[in-house]
Design a protein around this nucleic acid. Structure first.
Lengths: 206, 206
DNA sequence: TGCAAATCTTGTCATCGGCAAGTTGTCGCT
DNA sequence: AGCGACAACTTGCCGATGACAAGATTTGCA
């Protein structure tokens, strides 16, 4: 049947994609608690039951959005590390900056990604996506302390990630420097990053 | 009217308290997303509309539970620090251990406390309760590096808190050492703590 | 070409949070 | 003591939600 170009086709065509995009926007607008499957459907221009054909449940949609978030996070980390030149210490700091910048730009998504809510890594793809961010951090640490033992490298990768993650998490929750100006917060973040690098180097040269 | 001792009185008497306790248990059982005002009411043995007389909304109840959580967290930190003797370094490590132990014992509550969901510090009491945990960490750091400048102390307090918070958060989310035994995780946590202390001391003596 | 499967729709159900109105118990005031 | 206002709790209702069922439409493959 011929129909006008502006008419909505019965089949959306890319509903899965559209739902993920709409869901991400909705999430940042209304928060995790205001996230609604039906509202996602409305924004995608389909009926409330349509998403069921692409996501088994609302948790499935959240998991998909989280996976995409991990990929973006990894991209932001590598991009910022690349901009930081060849010095391993600078690269590690840069990666941390990329991490924090992504979290600050997508606070609700970031919260979802690191929330055990609807996110219990049942999906193998989610665990894999999360692991890639860890591996990036691990590689950067290994480049910084190449002569350290495997165990020290691992411990310091943990530590490096924990420092960065903890700092930006606390900032996003308003627990650190609530009333500080953005650039003051950035300075504090950089201070935390260099303290972290110092710790890694110290442990790596022992 | 005389009634048997076992009969339920029309007035509960301590509903506010009972709701907070029931809510906390429910939260740990069903997760933040499974938390329901009506289920809290059921567990407290009252009708679904009774909580409204004690909490303006579900977010109010969550905020109350979070405040209690902060008080418990601070108590756990001071208790563990006290057990660690007089050495400032040991006390700082101990406080971190108390922090992590509380988080591990109450993962969902911990997530709520550090979640911007329903937790936007509108309530002054909540902000105050949260601040007390930060001040504890700050005092422990200041005791460790008494001769450092105020700014260094502040930055190192940030760093110390971020390290501890980030580490336990990642562990609880299963991002760090998912398959490790509990004691192996504890060892990794202690390693992170001592690395953190070392850096604080170093920065404080510079 | 024709038919099965995929996609999307409308309709329904139990449950949720919040509000309204009525019931029961408590407590202060005279 | 008694009574009247108020606090605590109840039932009942509303719109919205997630999930499910059954029907309509489109696609694609045999």
């Amino acid at each position: 049947m011929a129909r006008a170009k502006t008419a909505k086709p019965y089949h959306h065509g890319e509903l899965r994609e559209a739902l993920a995009v709409a869901g991400r926007r909705l999430m940042e607008e209304k928060g995790l608690r205001g996230f609604t499957l039906r509202e996602c459907a409305r924004r995608a221009g389909v009926s409330h039951a349509a998403p069921a054909h692409h996501f088994a449940s609302i948790d499935d949609l959240l998991a998909e959005i989280a996976v995409r978030g991990y990929h973006e996070l990894a991209a932001a980390m590598t991009a910022e590390a690349r901009r930081s030149g060849d010095d391993p210490a600078r690269r590690l700091v840069g990666q941390g900056v990329g991490y924090m910048a992504f979290a600050a730009a997508n606070p609700v998504l970031f919260q979802l990604m690191f929330s055990r809510e609807a996110n219990r890594f049942e999906a193998e793809t989610l665990a894999q996506a999360a692991k890639s961010a860890y591996l990036l951090q691990r590689e950067a640490v290994e480049a910084l302390i190449p002569r350290a033992s495997g165990e020290v490298k691992e411990r310091m990768a943990d530590f490096a990630w924990a420092s960065v993650h903890g700092f930006i998490t606390l900032v996003l929750e308003g627990q650190l420097g609530e009333r500080d100006s953005p650039w003051a917060l950035k300075a504090r973040g950089l201070a935390a990053l260099s303290a972290m690098v110092e710790t890694v180097v110290l442990a790596g040269n022992r």
